[in-house]
Computed example of a mutant assay.
Amino acid sequence: MSLTFEHTTLGQRVLFGSGKAAEHLAAEVARLGATNIMVIASDFELKMARSVAAGIDVALWHTDVVMHVPIETAQAARTAAGDAGIDLVVCVGGGSTTGLAKAVALTTGIPVVAVPTTYAGSEATNVWGLTEAARKTTGVDDRVLPTAVIYDAELTLSLPVDMSVASGLNGMAHCIDSLWGPRADPINAALAAEGIRALAQGLPKIKNDPSGLPGREQALYGAYLSAVAFASAGSGMHHKICHVLGGTFNLPHAQTHATVLPYVLAFNATEAPDAEARIAAAFGADTATDGLARLRETLDAPKALKDYGFTAANIAEAVAVALPSIPANNPRKVTAANLTALLTAALNGENPKSLSDLS
């Protein structure tokens, strides 16, 4: 059978090297000719950000970072950038920090250099997200794609093991969702499979040796691949659900993705045999669900949404908000009834395999 597909590869410079973040950032600032730089970093990561930015002149430090990027937080950062005449935004941190930098870029067009400290992957996509009145809105705009990404595994050494696990599984969710996203294609699939393999190798190494670099380098590499695949394939069922859980109920981003992932995989796997086989092979397992379950057991991954504040009383609203946004090309038809069953299972940490028999 001949191949017929359309694929877009986003243009972005990637610099990868442990212990090289400050050197690489100074080089990027020089290359871009930026003279008025804003650095976004949370209070928690400000000390690290100052170290990364030691070789550049910073005009404005901005530390008002909030999970899920509330619109008020975004507008404050945009105003600060405009008032200071900023010509480059540097973000040092996880997905919330990167998301705020993207929010600035979305309306101002100011370029972004991202220095990620987690495995979220947002730094390699042109997807933005903002929360307003308990609803998270996402969109795609090339203005928010960081012009360069600087990966330095040393910056992730302070990320605790449990957060490393949750963040890494968030990256894996990008990979798996890419295999049935609305623009899924063979190139995305190849990138996603390699991302799964790298994350599956790297995350157990982080758990066994949190201060070692090999596992963290593999996880960063896998997270980048996951994001590139996701940016091209688009947001699938998993991400549509998790955006609602985060934006509407303020659940923690990485832990929510890590918890929901096995349920969406089990729900879709039987109706997506090619994707299932590719995922299983990337895990080196007989089935995709077994491979993910084995990894999650090794990592002691997040298990139930109830552990993060989600309740049975929230399910009906979550279904009502999420259901219309799930892509029509999802391998399995999604209904209010089976989505309710999926969220109920995820709420209580039930065996995901029960979802394969739902009608």
Score class of each variant (00 low, 15 high):
15 L>K: 04
111 P>G: 11
32 L>I: 13
338 N>Q: 05
310 F>R: 07
327 P>N: 09
170 N>G: 05
347 L>T: 06
298 T>G: 00
336 A>V: 13
317 E>D: 15
73 T>G: 01
330 N>I: 01
326 I>A: 08
346 A>V: 05
48 M>E: 07
155 L>K: 01
28 E>K: 03
37 I>A: 13
199 L>C: 02
343 L>H: 07
255 Q>A: 14
312 A>V: 07
116 P>C: 13
127 V>N: 12
184 A>R: 14
15 L>C: 03
194 E>C: 01
210 P>T: 11
180 W>A: 09
192 A>D: 03
339 L>H: 05
89 V>S: 02
302 P>R: 10
71 I>F: 03
200 A>T: 15
118 T>Y: 01
215 G>C: 03
17 G>I: 05
115 V>W: 03
74 A>L: 09
127 V>L: 15
204 P>Q: 00
134 A>Q: 11
331 P>K: 03
159 L>N: 06
332 R>P: 04
46 L>R: 13
285 A>L: 02
193 A>E: 13
65 V>L: 09
104 V>L: 11
351 N>L: 12
73 T>A: 14
171 G>T: 00
190 A>V: 11
160 P>Y: 06
44 F>I: 12
107 T>W: 05
212 G>M: 05
175 C>S: 06
150 I>W: 04
293 A>R: 15
134 A>M: 08
263 Y>W: 05
71 I>D: 08
236 G>M: 00
240 K>S: 01
352 P>A: 05
73 T>C: 08
329 N>I: 10
217 E>V: 00
289 T>D: 14
333 K>L: 12
359 S>H: 13
152 D>E: 09
160 P>W: 05
328 A>K: 15
346 A>G: 04
68 H>Y: 13
91 C>N: 12
150 I>K: 05
102 K>M: 13
164 S>G: 08
235 S>P: 03
101 A>Y: 00
140 V>Y: 14
270 T>I: 14
154 E>S: 15
